[in-house]
């Protein structure tokens, strides 16, 4: 930001929002990373830790909203300041959702325990999570630097995650067809994969919000989509 406000406490109020968003981002990242680790190592204790941490994000989001309402009431912000506050509210909501997805993934750890997840599948999930987490980490860095160019770049990269998600989807279908006993754990894993894929979407939403905060305009054009699972069907069992 170019210069500071004449009323310095206004700057403090805006900085509070930025700081809390960064904290939320760090917590959300940690939760997702722990949830996926708990999943592939079937670590029930770690999963429990993730589940209990979700309340931190819920509280942070509520506090950010309260501060935003107060700041709008007191300062009647316009232009970039108003976008800064609206952006914080929106990003807080996205991060809260990311936390929920992490928590939901952790909850499924118990259900898939003892199912003996194939190594290849675990690798696929880990890779998907790595990409989603990288996207989340980068978008949080962009939030700190407000680089319009980088915000655009992140938005245009979501298709990579979609592609891996689609291939995991196929793989899970195959396991389910091989042996009906796989259906329960694979359904849970499918939800886990979907959760992780959604995290990428939330990172993309955050990138779009940052773009709006910095420019006052919405990024142009459709975001690239490579999630084809909506039309995927299992092959007919051969007779």
């Amino acid at each position: 930001m170019s210069s500071t406000h004449i009323v310095s406490i206004y700057d403090e109020e805006l900085k509070y929002l930025t700081r809390r968003i960064s904290e939320m981002g760090g917590t959300a990242e940690q939760m997702v990373s722990d949830a996926v680790r708990a999943l592939v190592t079937t670590d029930g204790a770690l999963a429990q830790k993730v589940i209990s941490e979700d309340v931190v994000l819920d509280n942070a989001e509520r506090q950010i909203n309260e501060k935003a309402v107060l700041t709008i009431t007191k300062r009647q912000p316009v232009s970039a300041d108003l976008r800064e506050i609206l952006g914080a509210v929106r990003i807080a909501a996205e991060l809260e959702r990311v936390g929920d997805l992490g928590k939901n993934t952790a909850k499924r750890v118990i259900a898939v325990q003892g199912s003996g997840m194939p190594r290849k599948l675990a690798r696929g999930l880990e890779h998907l999570a790595e990409l989603a987490l990288m996207q989340l980490k980068e978008v949080l860095d962009v939030y700190a630097t407000r680089s319009v160019e980088k915000a655009k770049a992140i938005r245009e990269r979501d298709d990579e995650i979609d592609a891996i998600y689609t291939s995991l989807f196929r793989e899970l279908l195959t396991y389910m067809m091989e042996d009906p006993r796989n259906i329960t754990p694979c359904t849970h894993l499918l939800f886990c994969a979907k959760n992780i894929e959604r995290i990428g979407d939330h990172a993309t939403n955050i990138a779009e919000t940052i773009y709006f905060m910095a420019t006052g305009a919405q990024p142009e054009g459709e975001r690239p989509k490579d999630d084809n699972t909506a039309s995927l069907v299992a092959a007919e069992p051969s007779a």
């Binding site: 406000h5 004449i6 305009a217």
Partner: peptide, 19 residues
């Protein structure tokens, strides 16, 4: 003007950031 002015001076003035 009040959502996305073109000139930095306008931006600074309406946001109370003169100086």
């Amino acid at each position: 003007i009040f959502t996305n002015p073109d000139d930095q001076r306008t931006q600074d003035y309406i946001m109370g950031r003169f100086g």
